[in-house]
Amino acid sequence: MADTHKTHHVKGLQHQFDDMQQQQESATIGMWMFLVQEIMFFGGLFTAYLVYRSRYPMAFAAGSNHLDAFWGGLNTLVLIVSSLTMALTVYYAQKSNRAMQVVMILLTMFFGLVFLGVKVIEYSDKYNHGLIPVTGWNKKTSKQVVALPFETKAEAKETHDSHKEKPYVNPNGDFQWNYGGEDLVMLAKEKGWLTEAEKIGYFDPITKEFDPKRFENKVRIFYWLYFAMTGLHALHMVVGIIIMTWLLWKAWQGSFSAEYYSPVEISGLYWHFVDIVWIFLFPLLYLLGRHFLH
């Protein structure tokens, strides 16, 4: 009995552990295991992405070219910097430097919020152009209006026939694809790039003509993958910011020191993981497919 109870007096040590080292090791392995399951969780979506992207590369290229690599790239930069500030938070916790911990956590949170802000800009742009793949979730307008210019477009780097952009009419808030793709598909057909699935998937079975509606359905798959993957990622960012808020409070109180910093360390692991997911999302969603344009 005495043996088990004497350990209770160490600050921050939970009753089931013998010493701080055991507790810290448990927390770290626990977080790694959690991240493994996160990888599998995102893995389902990445698999779906791979399957459909290998089936319909042209539709994915068309959809991808409508995302703005500038904002995506900016967000990548923001997250990489936030990873640095997060790493510095751990460093200063190990140095028991309370002030710098607080500063670094604040910076990390700031970059996280910048990231989410950019996502809001991007998402609202999709809303204005009928690119959310859920009926009723797009801007509704029964009159023909001139399509809004893409706020997230620094310059027109769209598919070849983007100048044929149609005016925006959308009484039900449907998903719409008004940005062509036919010449991209025709180019690919000429060069023999079309996959077996595309040869069936884009063309009317009877007339053998390019069918914009069928093409739209495939672009729609790209967009829901875009929203599912970035949405899930953004959700993880929100959770990350909540964790940071808690960490900030604890750091403010001076809870962490060279002896006890494992909450900072495992929160850092989580934050880096969320960053790394984005490092994969950015090229897959924003960049892959751009080479079809040149």
């Binding site: 295991m33 493994v36 399951q37 996160e38 599998m40 969780f41 995102f42 893995g43 389902g44 979506l45 779906a48 459909y52 319909y56 793949p133 859920v134 009926t135 979730w137 998937g201 069928r214 359905n217 495939k218 729609r220 798959i221 829901w224 599912a228």
Partner: peptide
Amino acid sequence: ILGTPVVAITILLVALERIARIGIFDPTIG
């Protein structure tokens, strides 16, 4: 740890397909 998240996301996709008809499993929309 390795398997459960995959079925979780899969079931989530089924729910999304039902609610929003996103078109991942429905052959009529690709």
